[in-house]
Amino acid sequence: MWKIVLSSLACISLLCCLAAPLIYFLGRISEKNYKGIFLLASVFWFFFASLRVLQRKNDQKSGSIGE
């Protein structure tokens, strides 16, 4: 369950990283806002993706067959 939640949140963060420059390119947000959103989404990506990797490592240690 956690794996799915973490993977989903990580993917959403990465999509936000991609959406921010697109919206800026279309002229809907300012450069400052784009860079702020990109930074925040990047921090979330690293947080969730790292947790996901740790979760996977724990699963492997405990011999889970989920992977």
Binding site: C17, P21, S42
Partner: peptide
């Protein structure tokens, strides 16, 4: 993320 950075930067 680095790949997205390339796309985002160019865009």
């Amino acid at each position: 993320w680095i790949f997205i950075l390339f796309i985002a930067g160019a865009l």
